[in-house]
Simulated assay, not measured.
Amino acid sequence: MSLTDTKVKNAKPSEKAVKLTDGFGLYLLVHPNGSKYWQLGYRFEGKQKVFSIGVYPAVSLADARQRRDEAKKLLAAGIDPSAKKTS
């Protein structure tokens, strides 16, 4: 089930970090201290990797989805989004 702005805004921290999934690998990682990070889980060359998109609320849900789509296009072209981000 996809996330909504309300669900993201009202996400409460717990004792352990919690992943709230949006779909197609995108999720919001909510840390115990209350910080919220957008991340994308993906596989590249047979390895599981994580692409950090940004911090909520600086990066909105719509922005995170757009960046996810851009990263997926890079993957389809055979380019690792994390390597592209650092170069």
Score class of each variant (00 low, 15 high):
residue 18 V to D: 02
residue 60 S to R: 06
residue 22 D to M: 00
residue 72 K to S: 10
residue 84 K to M: 02
residue 15 E to I: 09
residue 83 A to Y: 10
residue 43 R to M: 09
residue 38 W to L: 01
residue 19 K to Y: 02
residue 56 Y to N: 05
residue 67 R to Q: 15
residue 80 D to K: 10
residue 69 D to L: 04
residue 14 S to E: 13
residue 44 F to T: 09
residue 1 M to H: 15
residue 38 W to S: 06
residue 80 D to N: 12
residue 33 N to F: 11
residue 12 K to I: 05
residue 26 L to Y: 11
residue 64 A to P: 02
residue 84 K to A: 15
residue 53 I to S: 13
residue 75 L to N: 14
residue 57 P to Y: 05
residue 20 L to N: 10
residue 26 L to K: 08
residue 70 E to M: 06
residue 21 T to F: 14
residue 33 N to G: 12
residue 8 V to I: 05
residue 3 L to A: 04
residue 9 K to M: 02
residue 41 G to N: 13
residue 36 K to F: 03
residue 11 A to W: 02
residue 74 L to Q: 00
residue 77 A to K: 15
residue 5 D to L: 06
residue 75 L to F: 01
residue 53 I to E: 04
residue 30 V to S: 02
residue 87 S to E: 15
residue 75 L to S: 11
residue 70 E to H: 04
residue 13 P to I: 00
residue 73 K to A: 15
residue 67 R to K: 15
residue 55 V to H: 04
residue 58 A to E: 13
residue 19 K to M: 04
residue 66 Q to T: 12
residue 14 S to L: 08
residue 8 V to T: 02
residue 13 P to K: 10
residue 73 K to Q: 15
residue 56 Y to F: 09
residue 34 G to R: 10
residue 11 A to N: 02
residue 78 G to M: 07
residue 69 D to S: 11
residue 54 G to W: 01
residue 10 N to F: 08
residue 26 L to G: 07
residue 21 T to V: 05
residue 42 Y to T: 00
residue 16 K to S: 13
residue 64 A to S: 10
residue 45 E to K: 14
residue 18 V to P: 09
residue 84 K to Y: 15
residue 60 S to V: 01
residue 22 D to W: 01
residue 31 H to M: 11
residue 19 K to Q: 04
residue 7 K to A: 14
residue 43 R to S: 06
residue 86 T to W: 13
residue 69 D to A: 05
residue 15 E to Y: 08
residue 39 Q to V: 12
residue 51 F to E: 01
residue 17 A to G: 13
residue 29 L to T: 01
residue 60 S to D: 08
residue 53 I to G: 03
residue 48 Q to D: 14
residue 73 K to W: 11
residue 59 V to P: 03
residue 55 V to T: 09
residue 47 K to I: 05
residue 35 S to G: 10
residue 10 N to A: 10
residue 86 T to C: 06
residue 74 L to T: 05
residue 72 K to I: 07
residue 77 A to Q: 15
residue 74 L to H: 03
residue 78 G to F: 01
residue 31 H to G: 01
residue 85 K to Y: 11
residue 37 Y to A: 11
residue 38 W to P: 10
residue 75 L to C: 08
residue 76 A to T: 12
residue 73 K to P: 12
residue 34 G to W: 12
residue 15 E to F: 11
residue 80 D to T: 07
residue 38 W to M: 06
